[in-house]
Computed example of a mutant assay.
Amino acid sequence: MSTISTKLTKLLGLRTPLVSAPMAGASGGALAAHVSQGGALGFIAYGYQSVDMLRSEVEMARSLLQIHPQSPLPIGIGYLGWQLEKPNTAAHELLSIALDNNVQAVWLSFGEELQRWIKFIRDSERKPGDTKIFVQVTSVEEALVAFNEWKADVIVAQGIEAGGHGSSTAAPLFTLVSEILSVIPKDGPPVLATGGLVNGSHLASLLALGASGIVLGTRFLLSPESLYSASQRQALISARTGSSVRTMAFDYARNTLGWPRGIDGRGLRNNTVVDFENGLDIDDLRRKYLEGVKANDPDRIVIWAGAGVGLMDKVQPAKEIVEEIHGECVAHLQTAASSLL
């Protein structure tokens, strides 16, 4: 299979300019490993789990990839900045898991002190520059800070269409990427696009726009390697365009508050969202949510989903998803090239 060459693939030695998003509660070692096996880059997410659980997921990825403990591990780990910044959090220990395992990349997002974590990573690396730093941004202003002040190795532009958490005021993805590319020098870091993306035509379109690759989240939730349950996957398959909404309902229901100002989540609209919108008492909302978790009830539990959810219709292994998107992208690029006079 041919390689698609971009700044991202050259930086990380990938065959496909594709990344699986670090999704808390969904992106474990199995998903990261199988995405990387497909020629893309898979991420493990650190969200709300323990230090030991994160170590366990990293070890799972290493085992599946059959990588020696002292060898570089071709996956990434994503960290929520605001979780690292909570009092009494073992932030340095959590970040050291990435460094001790010599992972290929660390992804940082949603924090007030990201520069602090970037400095810790760079000061602690075995070999300076080995661990690439991805910084997620939702505006041109954030992108310029990530480029000029933090010297990010990769900038991830997240549009309003993204599933999971993001800025409630972000621009549509194509507008945001265009704006960021207009201010980042051509010899600057790779700019990746994320938000509502599903297939190879989306990858081809963003490459044509000037992005160096894309990040997919919701599409990989439908892989058996994700940590989502069968009922959550079925809900995603049954969803249609317009089924996902931006809301804080699930954060109130789960008591996962603490996100930076202006951040909310995009998930499938269900009874938890309806009750929240109707002003149900928060204690009752949480009680019903916990009952839903015990019953694995998709009408109550959180099912994060991007705006492109209506374009997905099957469960598919993560490696196969990567290979399919790669093939679709190549076909679209070849068709576009043949249209040139």
Score class of each variant (00 low, 15 high):
Ala32Pro: 08
Asp283Ser: 13
Arg219Ile: 07
Leu222Asp: 05
Phe110Arg: 08
Ile214Pro: 09
Ala337Arg: 14
Pro74Leu: 06
Pro185Tyr: 09
Ser139Lys: 03
Gly29Thr: 02
Ala26Pro: 05
Gln37Val: 00
Ala331Ile: 03
Glu328Cys: 04
Glu328Trp: 02
Ser182Pro: 00
Asn88Ala: 13
Thr218Val: 05
Arg286Pro: 08
Leu94Lys: 12
Tyr46Asn: 03
Ala318Pro: 04
Gly47Cys: 11
Ala331Trp: 02
Gly166Leu: 01
Val183Gly: 07
Lys10His: 07
His332Val: 15
Arg55Glu: 14
Gly25Met: 10
Leu65Trp: 06
Ile75Lys: 05
Gly292Ala: 09
Ala337Gly: 07
Gly210Met: 10
Gly279Phe: 06
Gln158Ala: 14
His202Asp: 15
Met312Ser: 03
Ser212Trp: 00
Tyr79Lys: 03
Arg62Phe: 04
Ile325Ala: 02
Gln234Met: 13
Val51His: 15
Asp130Trp: 01
Asp264Pro: 01
Gly78Tyr: 11
Gly306Arg: 12
Gln316Tyr: 07
Gln158His: 05
Gly29Ile: 00
Arg126Lys: 15
Ala193Leu: 06
Phe110Cys: 05
Leu207Lys: 11
Trp259Glu: 05
Ser212Phe: 00
Cys329Val: 02
Gly217Pro: 14
Phe174Tyr: 11
Leu114Cys: 04
Lys186Asn: 05
Lys314Tyr: 01
Asp299Tyr: 00
Lys7Cys: 06
Pro69Leu: 09
Phe147Leu: 12
Met248Ile: 00
Leu8Val: 11
Thr16Ser: 02
Gly78Asn: 12
Pro224Arg: 04
Gln37Lys: 14
Ser63Gly: 02
Ser139Met: 06
Val106Gly: 05
Ala26Glu: 06
Thr241Ser: 14
Gly242Ile: 04
Ala249Thr: 12
Val309Asn: 07
Ser96His: 11
Lys288Ala: 01
Val315Ser: 06
Gly111Trp: 01
Ser168Val: 12
Ser212Glu: 09
His165Pro: 11
Val106Ile: 14
Gln115Ile: 10
Ala24Trp: 13
Arg254Gln: 13
Val51Tyr: 15
Trp259Val: 07
Glu112Lys: 13
Ala170Phe: 00
Gly47Asn: 10
Pro317His: 09
Leu280Ala: 08
